[in-house]
């Protein structure tokens, strides 16, 4: 087995294991940490496929910003394993079963697709220079609009998170 394969399998096991950890752990903080590890594994996959830019962006944006945000919120609400609500066992079983059925159905549908080896010569596609060229040439408009999207998300988050002036007054 060559290096590529070993790397692939290690990263895969890491990813799947941490994903399971996310959904199985009772402490929310542990879930967050497992998810961070999952993101690292996926970034590893990106590097394996020479999508370097995306790998870095994945780490910075997802693991760095989004997950930290999650952690803040969990800390804010003081969630821990004691107050964690649990669904009934039957419902959990139904959920797992339906997820499994979905997995099997899609698997059956796509098992015969054409496959191609991933171990191919390194292409410059994933490099930041090429991505940038495409992004700012063909996708200028979506790029700009995504900035508007961020703006609206920021404003929205601020507005939603603001306390009622009346309620704030009452609290005071």
């Amino acid at each position: 087995m060559d290096f590529y394969s070993i790397l692939f399998w290690v990263l895969s096991v890491l990813a799947v294991g941490c994903a399971l950890g996310v959904i199985l752990s009772r402490n929310p903080v542990h879930s967050v940490l497992c998810l961070i590890l999952t993101f690292f594994a996926i970034s590893g996959h990106y590097i394996l496929m020479n999508a370097q830019f995306l790998a870095i962006v994945n780490i910075i944006v997802y693991a760095g910003a989004i997950m930290v945000l999650f952690l803040f919120v969990i800390m804010l609400m003081n969630l821990n394993a004691d107050v964690e609500p649990q669904k009934g066992h039957l419902i959990q079983l139904a959920g797992v079963v339906s997820g499994g059925i979905l997995f099997l159905v899609i698997l059956t549908a796509v098992k015969d697709v054409k496959n191609q080896s991933m171990e191919m010569p390194t292409t410059p596609i994933g490099l930041i220079e090429n991505l940038g060229k495409e992004l700012f040439h063909k996708y200028t408009l979506p790029f700009e609009i995504s900035s508007v999207l961020f703006l609206s998300a920021m404003i929205g988050a601020v507005i939603i998170g603001k306390k009622d002036p009346a309620a704030a007054h009452a609290e005071n």
Binding site: A94, G95, S98, L102, V105, I106, T108, A109
Partner: peptide, 17 residues
Amino acid sequence: IFFMVIGMVVLFALSFF
């Protein structure tokens, strides 16, 4: 959400098979 997933499953099955 549960019924959404069930619906998805049914749709996938129907459309693929």
